[in-house]
C-alpha cells in the first residue's frame, strides 16, 4: 500500500501542493496525465521511426516484429469484419486499441486508470460513434445515411405509421451504442480494481497486510485488459461495417458481411 501511494506521489512530483500523507485526487490526475503523455510519446516515437524505415537499423527485430504482429492482427480484424474496404479504418482501430490497452495496463499497477473513469470512456465512445456516423454519411450521403435509419421501403399507408417509429428506435439504439461502449469498458476496469481492493481486505489483519490476496487476480485482470481493448475495436468495426456495407454495389463478390453479425 505504501508502495502504491509512493508511486502515485512520484508521478505527481510536479504538483506544488505535495506534502500530504496521501496524494490528492488532483495530484493523482496530473500524475496520470504525465504518465499518458510519456506513453504516447514513446508510442509515437516507435511508430514514427518505423515509418522512416529506421527499424532495421536501430531497433532490434523483436520490438519491430511485436508491433508488426499487432498491425497484422488489427488488419485481419478490419478486413474480416468490414470487408476489403476496411483497410482505411485500420489507423483508427489501431489508435483505439493502443489507447485502451495501455490505459488498462495502468490499472494493473495502481488503483486508478484513464479507463476506470467514466468520462474518458464516454469521450472515446462518442468519438467512435461520431466517426461511424461521419463515415456513414460520407459513404451513403447524408440523406442516405438517415434513410438507412428509417428501415425498409413500405407502402405509403404503412410507412406513415411505421417509419417514424423505426426511425425513433434506430436513433435510440444509435445513442445507446455510446452508453454500451463506455459502460462496458468502465465496468470491467473499475470493477476489476474494486474487486482487488475488496479481496485485499481478506488478508488485512487490522493494522498490517499479511497477504495481498486481491493482487493474485493479476492474470485475470491482464486477460481483461486485452479482451476489453479487443472488444472495443471489434464493436467499432461492426458498427462501421453496418453503415458502410451498402455503398459497394459495384463488385459484390461475397467477401464481406460473413463475419459481421446479422443486420
Amino acid at each position: 500500500m505504501n508502495l502504491i501511494t509512493g508511486f502515485q506521489f512520484l508521478l505527481a512530483a510536479g504538483d506544488a501542493e505535495g506534502g500530504h500523507h496521501e496524494a490528492s485526487p488532483m495530484a493523482q490526475f496530473y500524475g496520470l496525465m504525465v504518465l499518458i503523455a510519456i506513453v504516447a510519446l514513446v508510442t509515437f516515437l516507435f511508430l514514427g521511426s518505423a515509418k522512416k524505415g529506421l527499424n532495421t537499423k536501430f531497433f532490434s527485430k523483436t520490438t519491430t516484429k511485436l508491433l508488426e504482429q499487432l498491425y497484422v492482427f488489427i488488419e485481419g480484424l478490419a478486413i474480416g469484419i468490414i470487408g476489403p474496404h476496411g483497410k482505411k479504418y485500420i489507423p483508427m482501430m489501431m489508435t483505439f486499441w493502443l489507447v485502451i490497452f495501455v490505459s488498462n495496463l495502468v490499472a494493473l499497477l495502481i488503483h486508478a486508470s484513464p479507463t476506470s473513469d467514466i468520462a474518458f470512456n464516454l469521450g472515446m465512445a462518442l468519438i467512435a460513434v461520431g466517426y461511424v456516423q461521419y463515415e456513414g454519411m460520407r459513404s451513403n450521403g447524408v440523406v442516405g445515411h438517415f434513410s438507412h435509419f428509417a428501415g425498409p421501403k413500405l407502402p405509403i399507408a404503412m410507412a406513415v405509421f411505421i417509419t417514424p417509429m423505426i426511425f425513433l428506435i434506430e436513433i435510440v439504439s444509435e445513442t445507446m451504442k455510446n452508453v454500451s461502449l463506455s459502460l462496458r469498458l468502465y465496468g470491467n476496469i473499475f470493477g476489476g480494481g474494486e474487486a482487488v481492493v475488496a479481496m485485499n481486505k481478506l488478508g488485512y489483519n487490522g493494522d498490517t497486510f499479511l497477504l495481498p490476496v486481491g493482487d493474485f487476480l493479476f492474470p485475470i485482470k491482464l486477460l481483461t485488459c486485452v479482451v476489453q481493448a479487443l472488444i472495443f475495436c471489434l464493436l467499432f468495426a461492426v458498427y462501421l461495417s453496418l453503415v458502410t456495407h451498402h455503398h459497394e454495389e459495384g463488385h459484390d463478390h461475397e467477401s464481406h458481411g460473413e463475419a459481421a453479425p446479422a443486420h
Binding site: 469484419i81 479487443l230 472488444i231 461492426v238 460473413e258 453479425p261
Partner: peptide, 11 residues
C-alpha cells in the same frame, strides 16, 4: 470467425 462472434456475444 467463431471467436469474433463469441466475443461480441460475451460483450
Amino acid at each position: 470467425k467463431l471467436q469474433t462472434a463469441m466475443l461480441i456475444a460475451l460483450a
